[in-house]
Amino acid sequence: MAFVLTFLLRRLSQGIVIVLLVGFVIFSLLRIVPGDPVRIMVGPMATEEQVEQIAEELGLRDPLPVQFGRYLSDLARGDLGNSFIKATSGASVAGGRDDGSAARAQVLDLIVAAIPFSALLAGLGVLLALIFSIPLGIAAGLYPNGWIGRATFAISSVFVSLPNIWLGILLILIISVQLGWLPAIGYKGVAYAVLPAIVLAVELSAVIVRALASSVAATMQENFVQAGIVRGLTMRHMITHHVLRNSAIPMLNLFGAQLGGLLLGSLFVVEYIFNYPGLGLLTVNAVFQRDFPVIQGVAILTTAVLVLINILVDLISAGIDRRLQY
């Protein structure tokens, strides 16, 4: 128990530093790249005077450290600020002649509204990936030189090479447009998450299958496997009770990293292609529209989630194998 508490205390304090650092980098980069958010907010025909007035009101002309300090102080109170672009109604306030401040949505509300959609998509993607990868990865690990091992290697090579944009469009064209089996664009029910989840699963499977196969194959070479057989345990028992358990630790670590990849990479691209209303679509649109508060909010949230996942993975790994001390 004392170990767990010390572990959590140490890792969480490290995590907070990481989140703050990432937050500062994102915060600074957003203000360095070209593209004035106020110009997008008020539209192209607004005068420079109007632009500057709203920029001043929003504090965008203050020095960077002042802006970041203010942001952190709000953040400490759980306030991620208001979107520059999205209205509470779900519409956009961009292009209006006023700053639409009364109607601008809370970033936290936007994120909270988008999380269930992304969670569903990510969960379904991981589930499909595991259903596909676990049997195939274990079989390939047990028979690395057999046909199943070679076929698995070939499949994972193909999967890892498929660009998710291309695969997404192809799946929409075949499954949704040609065959009419599944809906594809937007979200009106769980069915809308299936096609994008398949795209995520394909990308994840490629990595999970290979990692699992090599982990199982490596464990099978360990002395304890032969020792168990010599002592009268069946191979089936050895695999189900010992090999898979020992192969799980590298998989857990991989999973931490892959979930991060899902949140930060594929999910964003896939949600944009499918017009799926999760965190990814929210963020991509926010980037195009220079919606600083939303980008910052999502960046801080995803960094925090990544840090937490990694802490959790390390904790579980230590639980499985007490020799591991992170």
Partner: peptide, 27 residues
């Protein structure tokens, strides 16, 4: 049933959905 696209179209047969390249403003 929910996995069949046509069963989930969600709009009446006399409805038109226009996909706009630009969002609307809140004002």
């Amino acid at each position: 049933a929910p996995f069949v696209r046509t069963a989930l179209a969600g709009q009446s047969s006399n409805s038109v959905i226009f996909a706009s390249g630009e969002p609307l403003t809140g004002n």
